[in-house]
Design a protein around this nucleic acid. Structure first.
Ligand code: FES
Ligand code: FES
Lengths: 147, 147
DNA sequence: CTAATTAAAGATAAATTTATCTTTAATTAG
DNA sequence: CTAATTAAAGATAAATTTATCTTTAATTAG
């Protein structure tokens, strides 16, 4: 479905939303360890994810790190896709035609249509904050280690 | 969602199902032109797709080419994924955890669960033949050119 | 101001996917 | 049997994605 970059970005965002605040920032080491992702690659992804401080915010220097504002946590999960430049990914034709449309549909379009709409609705209505809350409950996992 | 290889494989299969028969085989040129895919790459994909003659069948030499048996056309679309070695793709965790499961779910699992089941059901119940029938009606497109 | 700390930026590298091209094998028509 | 035709197999190459490493810039504590 998503690229590794986007997967890590989603996991990192949810983790930061749950663990950090402007007073308590998270370093890249803590993030990569928690979401079980390659350190340097995750650092690269965090650059994209925090660019413009729209979704995740970052500060350099001692006591610096990554965090999210209360406002950013209320954004839909889709914002992470947008920030990563993957905003088209949910709209694509499942058979790879250049464009998914009602007027020139592929053979799977009619059946796939509702699934696609459900997917878009999920990403547009669910907020980062809501996912972070589930993580806080401890009933859900963000890495493979399940420490 | 799928790799380019799998997208071309799905499109090629549906096209072959609609246009070919054991008496009327399709050459690789005709297939690539119809589904609007790169010729040589498609040839490679057709090798995988026809290996074992499970989904698509192939015959070499004059009047050779690709075709599908009546029986193969009744297979679920999922068989194409299996044949391409992409049989795990529908089962994956949307956040990229090693394993999607009820016992160690990711933060999106609960909401994604139904979408995933819908997707699996679509690929397991819809047959290649059914998709080909829609294509025959001309209400549906398998390439970008829409000739 | 200086040293320490942290992310940003940039340069590469490794791995994978996508794509192309050439040679071989099978099959058929004549 | 021979020539023609077609896919299979194999060797590369190009492009993209994933990953790593080094240098730079920002920021803070002292
Ligand atoms: S056109 Fe293929 S999914 Fe909509
Ligand atoms: S565990 Fe992530 S989708 Fe099931």
């Amino acid at each position: 479905m998503f690229s590794k970059s986007t997967e890590y970005a989603l996991r990192a965002t949810i983790y930061i939303a749950q663990k950090s605040s402007e007073q308590n920032k998270l370093g890249i080491n803590a993030i990569a360890a928690a979401i079980d992702s390659p350190l340097s690659f995750t650092a690269k992804i965090m650059q994209l994810l925090s660019r413009g401080n729209r979704v995740v915010s970052s500060v350099r220097g001692p006591n610096g790190g990554f965090f999210m504002t209360e406002k950013a946590m209320k954004l839909p999960v889709r914002s992470v896709l947008d920030q990563m430049g993957e905003d088209e990914v949910l709209e694509k034709c499942i058979l790879g035609l250049n464009k998914c449309s009602e007027s020139k549909p592929c053979p799977m379009h009619a059946e796939y249509r509702q699934i696609k709409l459900d997917m878009i609705r999920l990403f547009e209505t669910k907020t980062i904050e809501q996912l972070a809350a589930d993580l806080k409950e401890g009933e859900v996992y963000i890495g493979n280690k399940n420490k």
